[in-house]
């Protein structure tokens, strides 16, 4: 069932149009990755879907309702979004950051309920941070910090999580840690994930669907076997490559631009 969709979406910054008439729909409980070269509109698409950016034309639909007709907190109860490398004061304890995720469920003066506490507890367990709850953000490793941000978004109890390059600046171990966490959340809680990825091989390993963008348009949309081919990679990135299929996942070896 398609519960999240964008229709004829165009957007840009100032007069520069970055997204051109994009129509996409997302099924519940799947992981999709948006790939493409720098400036192709991946992050802009994600921002529009998470209503961080107002589209110049078109609509984003959640369960058949246009999100422009919904309040900020109503959207936030269904859609979680994490921008690329978010920052926060280094002295916030992990459990406080995660508790901020309850904001869309709270009114101005309402107190922290038992349900809020249980949700925060669950989010910290789901991300394996239960032993780090009293550590401050500045004391965590890069991977742990990213997990803390994901825990905050989980505490919103969203149906869909939008992530802009969740593995930037992380070493390969921490990249896998974050992506395996998302995979686990996807299988155990049915969380729908749409993420912008730079690493094609990680994107192919962890997502059932790849959406390749170029010049503000969707060039290709399908599973890894359909999208990751030598011709396609050359079309999208102008890079020569060889495709390797191993243990059921597809990877590309890059050979150079010349």
């Amino acid at each position: 069932m398609n519960f999240f969709a964008c229709e004829n979406l165009s957007a840009g910054y100032g007069r520069k149009e970055v997204l051109k008439n994009i129509t996409l729909s997302f099924e519940k409980g799947r992981i999709a990755s948006v790939i493409g070269p720098n400036g192709s509109g991946k992050s802009t698409l994600l921002k529009c879907m998470g209503r961080l950016l107002k589209p110049s034309a078109g609509c984003v639909y959640l369960d058949g309702r246009s999100i422009s007709s919904m309040t900020d907190s109503a959207i936030a109860r269904s859609v979680g979004i994490l921008p690329q490398s978010p920052s926060a004061p280094g002295d916030i304890p992990v459990h406080c950051l995660v508790a901020y995720g309850r904001n869309p469920h709270k009114k101005a003066l309402s107190s922290f309920t038992k349900e809020d506490r249980e949700t925060v507890e669950w989010a910290m367990h789901a991300t394996g941070l239960q032993d780090k709850r009293f550590l401050r953000l500045g004391q965590l490793s890069g991977g742990e910090r990213q997990r803390a941000w994901i825990a905050m978004a989980l505490a919103q109890r969203p149906q869909i999580l939008l992530l802009d390059e969740p593995t930037t600046y992380l070493d390969i171990h921490h990249q896998f840690e974050v992506l395996e966490l998302l995979e686990k959340l996807n299988t155990s809680c049915g969380l729908t994930v749409v993420m912008v990825m730079h690493d094609l091989n990680l994107a192919s390993k962890f997502s059932g669907r790849l959406i390749a963008m170029k010049d503000g348009q969707v060039l290709l949309d399908g599973c890894a076997e359909e999208v990751l081919t030598e011709e396609n990679i050359f079309d999208i990135f102008r890079v020569k490559s060889r495709i390797v299929d191993m243990d059921g996942s597809r990877a590309a070896m890059y050979m150079g631009v010349a």
Binding site: S73, R77, P83, Y100, N103
Partner: peptide
Amino acid sequence: GIGARYLNILMLGDDVARGLGLS
């Protein structure tokens, strides 16, 4: 006193704050 909670969320950056449902 009421705003303190919102100030905490604003300090996470505008994008994160909006993602958390803050106007």
